Structure formats: structure tokens, C-alpha cells
Simulated assay, not measured.
Amino acid sequence: MHGQLTGVEPSTGPEAAGAGPATAPGATVDAEPDLAHHGDAEATPGLVDLAVNVRRDPMPDWLADPVTAALADLAGYPDPRPARAAVAARHGRPPAEVLLTAGAAEGFVLLARALVGVRRPVVVHPQFTEPEAALRAAGHRVERLLLDPDDDFRLDPARVPADADLVMIGNPTNPTSVLHPATDLAALARPGRVLVVDEAFADTTGVPGVDGEPESLAARRDLPGLVVVRSLTKTWGLAGLRIGYLLGEAALLERLAAAQPLWAVSTPALAAATAVASPAGVAAERAIAARLAADREHLVRRLSALPGVRVAGRPASAFVLVHRPGADRVRQALRDRGWAVRRGDTFPGLGPDWLRIAVRDPATTDAFIEVLAEILEA
């Protein structure tokens, strides 16, 4: 089904989220992926975790101190205004164009619930499965645009249906690690359409000699209907704290805020958002991204030297996608040897011959490659 635009039957509630897709006559029908499966299910205790894309380095004092101090204020209700102002300043927007959320995942749920008049939502895959899962749980009929692995999962904007009034795409995309050009994504924006760009991993894309986040649309205020989804949980190891935000037109964010529970973001999470959005936080983030680029290059180089292993495209984030026939058997063998990697067959557009591997420090990568090479030899 690679390269096909396929429709998915509408969900009638959360229990229908696993319903299979309706395909055109003559199309190949693959097993319907489990959209509810995520990397944390792979990273069971006792395994070295290369399945979850969350950085696990110690939290720096400038971030830990305000989060810890916020625990003294838990008797009061959260006040999002300081954090919203800090995030807005970081991206050159007024505070009304920022909506703080309990992680990026809540943002997808708000979009699915608030955009009740959407007629033709299209989700570009392979990508993080929560956007489609949230849409289907809210009763939307979703169409999948599957990008071609033989073209390194690159987007051709012309393939998106002109009458799609909701388009969702990741940049950089999880799990492919593809970074689409900002010009290609901007070409998808138009009046009457909501364009959702998932930039949960945008802060991992900085490279030496480049200031900022190449290809991010977070500061673009001129594109109609654009909503940028951001996460603070990956780089800063805050998955358990749940903090992210949406950027977009104030009127559209008001619609989303109306679907959000009161006080959805906790006081410690707001403190974290304020700290990370500060100049010190942004500088630290870019230094981390530069180190990550070197670690990623090392992982790609080691993987590319293994027989039968193909690294997809030019990885740009905190993970790489690899193809090898029989990869799911390799994944099971890795588990037996104490290593967890992310299976690929739960992502639409992939299958059991794909694995996603998180970027770690060179010593961890070298130990992993040694075990993987032994498994491939056997």
C-alpha cells in the first residue's frame, strides 16, 4: 500500500479505534497497525532502552530547581500566564497564540474534539500514531497518505488532496527521522484548512553551524490555519511531567482551549515550561542538539556497516529507522540479549521488517552494535 491514499472507516468511539481501513478495489490489504502501541511498551524493566525517544541525562539545576520549588505552591490552582508568556516570547508570538497542554498528546485530542466540522482529514504516514488515533476516537473518518520508503519517505505536497480541510504531518517525523523542508510544509497551508505540524522533536534537529531549528514553522504567523504542536518531554526527560504546547492563530486556539479541562497543566509542569523557554534553556537545548547530531552520525555509521541493514533516508532527530528482512525476529533476539528497540509494524506504512532505534551515547551504541552484529551473524 506504499504510496496509496487510503480511507479508514470512521470510529464510533474509543472501542472502535482498531477498526481496519477501507481500501480501493485491487489494493493490497496489510494487517491494521495497533495505533495504541508505543515505545514504552517495549522498554520493560531490565532492558537497555533504545525504544523510547526520551533523553535520560540528569536534569540540570536551572530546570530542576524551579520544578522542585513549584511543589511548595500545590495548594493553589495553576496559573499558566507566566509560562505562556515565556513560550510566546521564545517563538516571537503574542501569548494569545500559545496554548499550553499536558504533553503533545493532549493537543491531538483537543484538535480531534474541537474541529467537529472537518469533512476530509488526511494524516501523512508513517508518523506518530496518536494524531490518527485521536481523530478516529472522536468519530472522524481519516484518510492516510502513505509516503514511499523507496523515496526516503519524502513529502510531495501535490499528493495531499486539495479539498483536505485538516492535514496532519510530523516534522521531523517519528518514526522515520525525516526532516521535511519548511517550504514544502508551508505549501500545504491555505484558507479553509487546518494544517497541523507535529514538531515534538524539532528541538533535536539543530546542527553545528546552524542557529536554531532548521525547517521549523513555530515562528510563522503568516500561514492560514497553521497549528504547530510542540513537546518539552523528549529533550528534557519530562515524559512523566506531561508538558507541551500548541502555536497558532488566537481564534483557533480559543476553540481548542474550550475543549480543554480546567487547569490541565500542573504547576510544576508550568515551571518547567518557563525555564526551558528562557534564553538559558534555549542555549542548553541547542548544545544538546549539537551533541546529539554527533551521536546520531556515529549510530548511523555503525548501523550502515552491518550486512543487510539499511538506514532510511538522512536521519535528523533523536532516532533512526532501519530496514532489514526479518527485523521483527531480530527485535525478539535483541530482547533476549537485554536490548529494547521499537517495532515498526504498528506504524501505518511500515511493517515487521522495520525497526526504530533511539540515539544514545557512543559507548551505548557500540555495545548495542556488537550484540546486533552477533545476532545478524547467527
Rank of each mutant, 00 (worst) to 15 (best):
Thr346Ala: 12
Glu130Ala: 12
Ala239Lys: 09
Pro82His: 03
Ala104Asp: 14
Arg356Lys: 04
Leu100Phe: 11
Leu241Glu: 01
Arg343Asp: 08
Val341Leu: 10
Phe201Gln: 06
Asp152Glu: 14
Pro175Thr: 08
Val197Pro: 00
Gly326Asn: 01
Val371Trp: 05
Ile169Glu: 09
Gly209Asp: 02
Ala187Phe: 01
Val210Gln: 09
Ser266Trp: 08
Arg120His: 10
Ala273Arg: 07
Ala378Tyr: 07
Pro149Ala: 06
Ala182Asp: 15
Gly240Ser: 03
Asp73Gly: 10
Pro172Lys: 14
Thr173Tyr: 02
Pro82Ala: 05
Trp263Gly: 10
Pro126Phe: 02
Pro175Val: 03
Glu143Val: 06
Asp198Pro: 00
Asp163Arg: 15
Glu97Ser: 15
Met59Ala: 14
Ala43Gly: 03
Asp156His: 13
Arg190Tyr: 01
Val118Ala: 08
Leu238Trp: 04
Val276Leu: 15
Val87Asp: 01
Val371Pro: 01
Ala134Gln: 12
Leu166Glu: 07
Arg141Val: 00
Ile369Arg: 07
Asn171Tyr: 05
Ala318Ile: 14
Gly313Thr: 10
Gln127Ser: 13
Arg90Asn: 04
Leu238Thr: 01
Ala31Phe: 03
Pro126Met: 05
Ala164Phe: 05
Gly338Ala: 07
Ala318His: 13
Ala24Asn: 14
Val52Phe: 05
Leu146Ser: 10
Gln332Tyr: 01
Val67Ala: 06
Ala88Asn: 02
Val320Ser: 12
Ala158Arg: 13
Leu306Ile: 15
Ala333Gly: 08
Arg286Pro: 00
Ala287Lys: 12
Val67Pro: 04
Gly344Asn: 03
Asp336Phe: 07
Val29Phe: 07
Ala104Thr: 10
Ala72Asn: 07
Arg310Ile: 09
Ala340Arg: 10
Gly351Lys: 03
Phe128Ala: 15
Leu115Glu: 11
Pro279Lys: 07
Arg193Met: 03
Val197His: 01
Val109Ala: 14
Thr28Trp: 12
Arg286Trp: 10
Pro352Trp: 06
Tyr245Arg: 03
Leu252Thr: 14
Arg193Lys: 03
Ala280Ile: 11
Phe108Gln: 06
Val196Tyr: 06
Leu355Glu: 02
Val309Gln: 08
Ala162Tyr: 05
Gly92Ala: 07
Val118Ile: 14
Leu147Lys: 00
Ala264Ile: 09
Val160Arg: 08
Ala259His: 11
Val194Lys: 09
Phe153Pro: 06
Ile357His: 02
Asp184Lys: 12
Val330Asn: 01
Asp165Tyr: 10
Asp353Leu: 08
Pro348Phe: 10
Arg296Gly: 13
Arg296Trp: 15
Ala89Tyr: 07
Arg310Asn: 11
His125Gly: 05
Val227Ser: 11
Leu350His: 04
Ser216Arg: 15
Glu374Leu: 11
His140Ile: 02
Pro315Gln: 05
Gly338Glu: 06
Gly326Trp: 02
Arg159Gly: 08
Leu146Thr: 13
Lys234Pro: 00
Leu306Asn: 15
His180Met: 10
Ala316Asp: 10
